[in-house]
Amino acid sequence: MTHREPVIPAGRHALYDQHKYSAALRSGDLLFVSGQVGSHADGTPEPDFPRQVDMAFENLVAVLDAAGCTLDDVVDVTTFHTDPEAQFGALMAVKDRYFETAPYPNWTAVGVNWLAGFDFEIKVIARIPGAA
C-alpha cells in the first residue's frame, strides 16, 4: 500500500481544521491538492469574485510550495464555478497570470450550485519533482 503523507502549508487557514481535511496528500510521486478557495485566514470568503479567484490561486501556490512543487508540476486541474458563464472572463484573466506558457495542464471546469459560500474552487494533481 502506498503511504499517504499530509502536506500542510505555512499559515494554515481555519478551513482545514473546521472541516477536517488535509490541504494535500503526497502519495508516491504525486500530490493530490484539495480544493482551494479564496478564503481569508479565518476561513471566510472574499466577496469580490476576481480577488476570490486570485486568493484561491495564491492558496494553491502555497500548498504546492509546501510540497516542493510549483504550478509547472501541475498535470491536472479541476475547477468549480457557481456561475460559469458570468464568471469565465474574470477567471481567465486570473488564470492566465498563473499558467502563462504551454504546455498547459489538463483542465476540467464544473458548474455547481453550492460551494459553502464561495463562488470558485480549484483542485489539482501535481507530480512531485525528484520523488521516486
Rank of each mutant, 00 (worst) to 15 (best):
G130A: 10
N59G: 14
D48A: 13
H81Y: 02
F118L: 03
F120P: 01
W107P: 01
V112I: 11
D17C: 07
H19I: 04
D29N: 15
Q87M: 07
S39M: 01
I125C: 06
A90Q: 15
N106Q: 15
H3A: 13
V77E: 15
A62H: 02
A126K: 03
R12Q: 14
I125T: 14
E58R: 15
D48H: 14
A56G: 14
A126H: 07
G68L: 08
S27C: 13
T79G: 02
P6W: 08
T2S: 14
Y98S: 03
D96W: 04
G117V: 11
E58N: 14
T79Y: 01
R26F: 10
A86L: 05
D42T: 04
D29T: 11
E46Q: 14
L15W: 09
L60M: 04
L25K: 11
T78Y: 02
D29K: 13
T108L: 07
V112S: 10
T79K: 01
M92I: 04
P47H: 05
A62V: 02
I8S: 14
T79I: 00
D29I: 04
H81F: 08
P103F: 14
Y16K: 03
L60N: 04
A23V: 11
V74L: 05
V112G: 00
A86C: 03
A23Q: 10
